[in-house]
Design a protein around this nucleic acid. Structure first.
Length: 556
RNA sequence: GGCCCUAUGGUCAAGCGGCUAAGACGAAACCCUCUCAAGGUUUAAUCGAGAGUUCGAUUCUCUCUAGGGUCACCA
């Protein structure tokens, strides 16, 4: 091997590196998969909890891999040691699991799985060093000694001259430093980073294909970007090229904010001798803020954090269905046709994907969630509630565990069928709606009194309730039973229907609706509740009579 | 500001040269009804602007405008 002028420098910086890119190609061979199988990944940085946009991205990436019998893996991009949040990598994986989109390969929280690792970038330094050394030997990477302040100064000059800011062309001062001189400065202990020597021309256009948007034409990259930071770790751009190549990603699925740096990536892939992967840049999820759209912000918007929905008790399926409706507009139609919200059964396609950023729509999510919950069996719903309340609602948890049978019955009211009851948006809604079934909760509610209709005389209410306690037989079928309520009303001068009452309001104290309300208020402590007949059946005779007695005592 | 992406009702959107411009969520109204939640039936609401191509533009082209993104030793 003939000595080139970069060799001494490269050997000094990378004394440990003896392998080459060719060795890596052997070590990480092409995956043994059918030709149409997609290898996709989710590549978060552990800087906080899972963002809704990230869940969206991983959902799509996961779906693309699954639909093609490919592989979905997770790579932890932990190269920014300053911003890293302890434990957030594990949390990320845990939250993905909640949504059942956890990867089968890669970083899985406490361990890695797969042949293409390590899956944490912080553990892949030797791989990056091999690649950088090779670039350096080819003259395509060089050390840069510019300080942050110097960089800032050039930037100001560039801005003042209305030139494009950045490290390129004549502004890339360190690119002309002779390797021998650079070596001396490094030996002298001067801090440095390693930059990529771009051969691009800003006046040329580079065209690349995006799976969602079609061909995109952007100016070639001509920036000598940093590829190795002074701490020895790679920057995103470089790690992306190296990792996605050696992990054999077929389609890179990421947010649209990456479109503008694609020319950098393309040049990197080309220079390293790698085949470029396919790209799909997903629209971002936004929110309206004072009339302006903006990206969902983790700091300002609680709904930006996936944990917000987990804590709030949204079933995983609800959020997934909502996100899939954003991803593919025909998904919603599909759910209506199939009465199914399971995204696994749906076929995703990039063609049906929207190109524009979408506004997060809470009402739409709630709609999906109601539909999803309405499809649960009572037992399934109960089990999910037990699971959820264990972490987020201890009071409910106690009640559920201590009253399993009653709880399931309560959750089963008007469940199933064409006109299923849809009053639960999330698990959080459960306690306020069915809490009264539990005696403790009922007693708590009535501490503040009963909201009886004040226009009706107390005496009348007491008589009516006493009569009801004596005569009520809810073992009858619903409509037969309700006829008995009408009769009860008639005995106490209430019209048997609203219509009748309206025709001659003077003749009655009220109508059957008022009668039902009185019973409801007595038993539930509120003017609203699920179907009265069901409530009675679930409470049972003893409890009903006890509650009526309490109500009468209150009225006296 | 340069570059890139995007542009149909409040939101999500069908449409791919000729339609009274689908549908869903949301809103409103009515019906049903023991309340609530459902369910049913309606209603209101959209092609950003201007040129061009064409017999004809929401649809094709250009310009403008607007919104979003990006210009770090962050990803």
């Amino acid at each position: 091997m003939t000595m080139n002028k970069y060799e001494e420098l490269a050997n000094y910086i990378f004394p440990d590196v003896s392998e080459t890119i060719a060795d890596l190609e052997k070590k990480y061979p092409n995956r043994n998969l059918p030709s149409n199988a997609e290898v996709t990944r989710f590549a978060p940085s552990p800087t906080g909890f899972l963002h809704l946009g990230s869940l969206f991205t991983s959902l799509v990436a996961n779906k693309v891999a699954k639909d093609s019998n490919g592989v979905f893996y997770l790579r932890l991009e932990d190269t920014d040691t300053k911003r890293e949040v302890e434990g957030s990598g594990e949390e990320l994986v845990k939250q993905l699991s909640y949504f059942n989109v956890a990867p089968e390969e890669g970083y899985l929280g406490n361990h890695d799985v797969g042949e293409y690792g390590p899956y944490r970038q912080s553990e892949r330094e030797h791989i990056y060093r091999i690649c950088i050394k090779e670039l350096m030997l080819k003259g395509r990477a060089y050390p840069c000694f510019c300080s942050a302040q110097e960089l800032e100064e050039t930037r100001e000059i560039q801005e003042a001259n209305k030139e494009i800011p950045g490290y390129y062309g004549d502004y890339a001062i360190c690119r002309t430093i002779e390797p021998s001189e650079a070596l001396l400065r490094i030996k002298a202990g001067e801090p440095y980073v390693i930059r990529f020597r771009s051969m691009g021309n800003h006046n040329n256009k580079v065209v690349f294909h995006d799976e969602i948007r079609g061909d995109i034409s952007i100016a070639e990259n001509d920036m000598d970007i940093v590829i190795m930071k002074s701490d020895g770790l790679p920057t995103y751009h470089f790690a992306h090229a190296v990792d996605d190549h050696f992990m054999r990603t077929t389609t890179v699925i990421r947010g649209e904010e990456w479109i503008s740096s694609a020319p950098i990536h393309l040049e990197l892939f080309e220079t390293l001798g790698f085949k470029t992967p396919r790209y799909a840049h997903l629209p971002v999820i936004m929110k309206l803020d004072n009339g302006n759209k903006r990206k969902l912000s983790k700091r300002k918007d609680p709904e930006a954090s996936v944990s917000h929905f987990i804590e709030g008790g949204y079933p995983a399926e609800s959020l997934k269905a909502y996100l899939m409706s954003i991803a593919n507009s025909n998904f919603e139609e599909w759910t209506a046709e199939n009465k199914c919200y399971d995204i696994d059964k749906f076929t995703f396609s990039f063609e049906k994907m929207s190109l524009d950023g979408v506004l997060f729509d809470q009402a739409k999510l709630d709609f999906f969630s109601k539909e999803v919950i309405a499809l649960f069996s009572a037992e399934d719903f109960y089990n999910r509630l037990v699971e959820w309340s264990k972490d987020f609602d201890h009071v409910l948890h106690e009640h559920l565990v201590n009253n399993k049978e009653k709880s399931i019955k309560a959750l089963n009211i008007e469940r199933g069928g064409e006109k299923a009851r849809k009053d639960f948006v999330c698990y959080k809604d459960v306690y306020p709606i069915i809490g009264f079934f539990y005696e403790d909760r009922y007693l708590e509610i009535i501490k503040n009194g009963y909201p009886f209709n004040e226009k009706i005389d107390k005496k009348v209410i007491i008589d009516l309730l006493s009569d009801f306690a004596k005569t009520n037989d809810y073992s009858l079928a619903n409509d037969v039973w309700f006829n008995s309520v009408k009769e009860l009303g008639i005995r106490h001068k209430f019209a048997e229907s609203g219509k009748l009452y309206k025709q001659n309001p003077e003749a009655y104290l009220g109508h059957v609706g008022d009668v039902a309300e009185i019973i409801r208020v007595a038993l539930v402590g509120a003017k609203n509740s699920p179907n009265l007949h069901s409530v009675l059946q679930i409470l049972g005779k003893d409890e009903v009579n006890k509650r009526i007695k309490l109500a009468i005592e209150y009225l006296n």
